[in-house]
Design a protein around this nucleic acid. Structure first.
Length: 464
RNA sequence: GGCGCCUUGGCGGAGUGGUUACGCAGAGGUCUGCAAAACCUUUUACACCGGUUCAAUUCCGGUAGGCGCCUCCA
């Protein structure tokens, strides 16, 4: 399996350390607000990665964290904690806010048919691990303490700028935020922040350095190492994490262990709405619930996400969502053929397509190519028939497509006996050339959202 | 200012030095009792200008426009 590695900026062969095991860590959500479609583009893509790893014979262990403390209003550790800010906004405690949005996120994950990660660790449940890691960094001389917290001295890690190919000096010239003057370097980041003297936080813990809370970056290092070991096979996240969050994760993890933190880094590009990124400041976040309210099945969004490549900047619009809905309908019509095999020698030969589809997925998750092949499969059979002889193989093929895409094609329901009887009755009157009665029956079925097409091998129904 | 990316037919979106991507939508046709589905045809596709080449949408240089990160943020 080949994947693009941000570390080397090349597509390379995935080489897990202990195959068939493969460790995957995904930077999860900060649960201070609802997730929007941009988040789902990213998370569905990682879900697709896991599905492809499994389909290729690996046994991945997937960990996705929940950031429920410490993510400050600025990634660069300025400003206040997002959770505390969200709590103030909603008149709740930070704990209540975290639980509410965590539950909402997981509910949406299920609606989108995502695999459940093996672990979804919360930062607040791993304070000890984070403190231990900071202690390790302190012992090795990578930290210093100033008035508001314990910081990582990025100048002690010479490779700091390498991952994101940062030009630290030039970058400072354009900085738009005031840097804490106590920091030794502009890129230094907080490992432990002290609670403010003037008010009590909802979330705070004792530590060797004083009461406070962990910085955002340290949680991912601490929790990934706890569950997956010191060197990850794959680390994934949004493209925005390259210059700060992941750069910092590498700095602190590799300083602590002396080992490579992750062998392969994958980043999902952003999705644009009306040519702009989705951002709080633009107020253009669309939630999964907004789609559902407009009558879209979450699977439509899932298919739409797969229609573009994860490394390219894709676009979201209601028009393209409608196109995805129609495409999904076509796939579902293909899937419904499993209930009505015909006496025909026409073969869909789905297993031939599956090899090519899987190969496309294993080529850096080329989902557009994989879907192109799937669409060809859906439209291949002459008059869209499958033969009785291949119905079992066809069902197996649908299951394999589900394994890769998660579009729920295999798990569909047959029509009712009553509906089958109506179709049979229509065949009878059609045989008698009673076109009026025949069309009445067709209209009656249409009211139950069932369409019919008459083929030389008998009528085939499809859901409208 | 620094780093990086993009510009493909009505819309979305792959890909390639010479061959139909694919999907959705529109028009015409074949087929059909009528439909439907399928199939066929169709609307001069690769921003612009140079260069390399037998051949460039696909490589190189420039121009124009747009975008992302360096604030929020997947």
């Amino acid at each position: 399996m080949k994947l693009y590695n941000t570390l080397t900026r090349n597509v390379e062969e995935l080489k897990p350390q202990n195959p068939p095991a493969a460790t995957v860590y995904t930077c999860g959500p900060t649960v201070y607000d609802y997730a929007h479609v941009g988040h789902w583009f990213t998370y569905v893509r990682w879900d697709t990665l896991l599905r492809t790893l499994k389909a290729s014979g690996l046994e991945p262990k997937w960990v996705m964290n929940i950031t429920d403390v410490g993510h400050l209003v600025s990634d660069a550790d300025e400003g206040e904690d997002k959770l505390e800010k969200g709590a103030r906004r909603e008149g709740k405690t930070a704990w209540e806010v975290a639980k509410f949005y965590t539950d909402d996120f997981i509910a949406d994950m299920h609606k989108l048919g995502m695999l459940t990660p093996d672990e979804m660790p919360r930062a607040t449940e791993h304070i000890k691990e984070q403190i231990d890691l900071i202690k390790k960094l302190e012992e090795k001389g990578f930290t210093y303490t100033i008035s508001d917290g314990v910081y990582y001295d990025t100048s002690k890690f010479p490779q700091y700028a390498d991952f994101a190919k940062l030009d630290l000096e030039e970058q400072q010239a354009g900085a738009r935020v005031e840097v804490n003057p106590e920091k030794r370097n502009a890129t230094d980041f907080a490992l432990w922040k002290f609670s403010p003297a003037d008010h009590q936080r909802d979330m705070e813990w004792d530590s060797p350095w004083g009461k406070g809370f962990p910085g955002w970056h340290i949680e991912c290092s601490a929790m990934s190492m706890k569950y997956l070991g010191e060197t990850l096979d794959i680390h994934t996240g949004g493209i925005d994490h390259v210059p700060v969050h992941h750069t910092n994760e590498i700095a602190q993890s590799e300083a602590a262990t002396g080992k490579r933190f992750a062998n392969l880094w994958m980043h999902s590009n952003h999705v644009l709405i009306n040519g702009e990124k989705i951002a709080k400041s633009l107020g253009n976040g669309i939630r999964l619930q907004d789609l559902i309210d407009k009558g879209f099945d979450p699977m439509v969004l899932r298919l739409h996400i797969l229609e573009s490549h994860y490394r390219s900047q894709s676009k979201f619009s209601w028009e393209s969502l409608e196109a995805a809905r129609n495409r999904l309908h076509n796939y579902q019509r293909m899937a419904d053929l499993q209930f009505q095999p015909a006496q025909t020698d026409v073969w869909i030969a789905a297993d031939q397509s599956l090899g090519a589809i899987q190969a496309a997925m294993e080529d850096d998750l080329n989902t557009p190519e994989a879907l192109a092949l799937t669409s060809e499969l859906a439209g291949r059979a002459e008059e869209r028939l499958i033969s009785r002889a291949e119905v079992d193989a066809f069902r197996l093929a649908l299951q394999k497509l589900d394994d890769l895409f998660g579009l729920d094609l295999a798990d569909r329901q047959d029509i009712t006996e009553e509906q089958k009887n109506l179709i049979a009755l229509r065949e009878e009157v059609r045989g008698a050339k009673d076109w009026t009665r025949s069309d009445e029956l067709r209209d009656a079925l249409a009211k139950q959202n069932l369409g019919l097409r008459d083929t030389p091998h008998g009528p085939i129904w499809f859901r409208i």
